[in-house]
C-alpha cells in the first residue's frame, strides 16, 4: 500500500527535483565557457553576496513575522465563524487575480497622488512618498503572503478537539489561558507550516523588489534573475540557487516539528 501511494510522488521527486538539482549543482561548478571551476563559490563568499544574503534573510524575517502577527488572529477569528470554509475562500480569492496587475493597483494606491495620500491630505497631513520604500515592499509582500499563512494555521486550529478547550474552561482557565495554554500549543504544526510557506519563498522574491521597491532592495532572487537572464552566467546563477537550497534546509531544521523528529 505504502509503495503504491509513494510511486507517483517519488517519480515526481526524481524527475522534477533530484534531476534538476543535480543539473544545478553541475552548472554551479562551471564558468561561462563551460570549464570546471570553484570560482563561483569563491565569488559567493565575497562581500556583495554576503550582504545580499543578510538582506534577504532580514526582509524575509520581517515579512514572515508581520504576516504571522496578522494571520494568526485572523485564522482564529475565522475558525469561530459559522461558515468557516466560505470565509476562508473569501481570504483566498484575491490570490487568483494576477500579481503584476495587483502590484500596478498598489502603485496607484500608494502613489504620491494615490488614494492613501489623498486621504492623508484630507486629514491635513503631509503627503509622503510611499512607493519605492521598505514600507511599500513589506506591505505588498505581507499582502501576498497572508492567505498562505492563514490556511495552514486555520486548519490546525480547526482540527483541535473542542472538548479540550471546554475541559480547560471547566478546570477554571480564563479565555486567555485557554488560548495560550491550549489553542496556541496545539496549533503549532500549522504555524510552522505557515512560516515555511512564507519564509522560504520570501528569501527569493525578485519581482516585488523591482516593482514596489524600485530595486533598492536587492535580494538573492534578484541576483539569480540577473545571472540567468542578463549575464547569461548560468554557473553563477546556479551557485546562488545551491545556496538558497542550503538556506532552506537550515530553515527546515529550525522549524522542524517534534513529530517529524521522532
Amino acid at each position: 500500500m505504502k509503495r503504491v501511494l509513494a510511486l507517483p510522488y517519488l517519480l515526481w521527486m526524481v524527475v522534477f527535483v533530484i534531476l534538476p538539482v543535480f543539473l544545478m549543482i553541475y552548472y554551479s561548478f562551471n564558468d561561462m565557457s563551460g570549464n570546471l571551476t570553484l570560482q563561483n563559490y569563491a565569488e559567493f563568499l565575497s562581500s556583495n553576496y554576503i550582504k545580499m544574503t543578510l538582506n534577504s534573510f532580514w526582509y524575509a524575517f520581517l515579512i514572515t513575522v508581520i504576516t504571522l502577527i496578522v494571520s494568526y488572529p485572523l485564522a482564529l477569528v475565522i475558525s469561530r465563524l459559522k461558515h468557516k470554509t466560505f470565509w476562508l475562500l473569501i481570504i483566498i480569492i484575491p490570490t487568483w487575480i494576477n500579481i503584476l496587475l495587483k502590484t500596478y493597483a498598489f502603485i496607484g494606491i500608494l502613489g504620491i497622488n494615490g488614494i492613501l495620500n489623498s486621504v492623508l491630505e484630507k486629514f491635513g497631513l503631509m503627503k509622503i512618498q510611499l512607493l519605492f520604500s521598505d514600507f511599500a515592499f513589506i506591505t505588498v509582500a505581507v499582502y501576498i503572503f497572508i492567505p498562505f499563512m492563514v490556511l495552514p494555521i486555520f486548519n490546525s486550529i480547526n482540527g483541535i478537539n473542542k472538548n479540550l478547550i471546554w475541559a480547560s474552561y471547566d478546570l477554571g482557565a480564563s479565555k486567555w489561558e485557554a488560548l495560550t495554554k491550549v489553542i496556541i500549543p496545539l496549533s503549532l504544526e500549522g504555524v510552522k507550516s505557515g512560516i515555511q510557506i512564507t519564509f522560504i519563498p520570501a528569501l527569493s522574491l525578485f519581482m516585488l523588489s523591482r516593482l514596489v521597491a524600485g530595486n533598492k532592495v536587492v535580494t538573492l532572487g534578484t541576483a539569480i534573475e540577473q545571472q540567468f537572464l542578463t549575464n547569461e552566467n548560468w554557473g553563477m546563477g546556479s551557485t546562488v540557487g545551491v545556496f538558497l537550497i542550503l538556506f532552506m534546509v537550515f530553515v527546515m531544521l529550525v522549524t522542524r516539528t517534534k513529530k517529524e523528529s521522532i
Binding site: I197, P201, L203, L244, M248
Partner: peptide, 24 residues
Amino acid sequence: VKSTLLTLNNVLIVSPDVIIGASL
C-alpha cells in the same frame, strides 16, 4: 529519510521561477 524527503519536497518552493523554468 523523512527529513531528507521533506527537504527535497521544498526545493521547488525556494527555487526562483527562472531556475525552475530554465531547468524544466
